[in-house]
Amino acid sequence: MSLQVFFLLAFGGAAVWFGIVVFLTHSMVRSALALLFSQTAIGAMFLVMQAEFLGVLQIMMMATEMSIMAIFMVMFMMDPGGLGEMDMKHQRKTSLAAGLVAFFGALAVAVFADWGPLATDIPDAGEQVRLLGFELLGRSMLIFESAGLTILTAMIAATALAVQARERGAKA
């Protein structure tokens, strides 16, 4: 077993475990932070797979994103220190079945598909960043720009949604 496999297993296991914790714990803040650590472990998996830029980016973005998620959880659920023991699940059996089917389906594909030989020749991290830059601002510029535009639109739309009705002039 190569070192890479070992670390992939370790970080992957951590990611899955934290992912499960998200839905096990009763505390909203713990849920959000478990998701954060799951995403961080995924970032670490990227690093193991030598995608340095993406890994670091994932680790950075998720810390902020999930903290924001935590505060929203507290806002909406008024989490009383995680002691609420609230039950917030429905259609348990269906979901569990769907989850298992999804897992085994994807697993079967992963295991039984013929992936062919693995690539061994990887551009180093600096080269990757350079190539990615050329890709983003070259051939894929349009896609990249539309992604930027999308996120801007989403920001504006989300703000508009969140602004109170009276500020839009219609106090119903």
Binding site: L8, L9, G12, G13, A15, V16, G19, I20, V22, F23, S38, I42, M45, S95, L96, A98, G99, L100, A102, F103, F104, G105, A106, L107, A110, V111
Partner: peptide, 12 residues
């Protein structure tokens, strides 16, 4: 397979 497990968890 790690991704598959996460996917299953997410779907659930």
């Amino acid at each position: 397979s790690m991704a598959a497990a996460l996917f299953g968890t997410g779907v659930y």
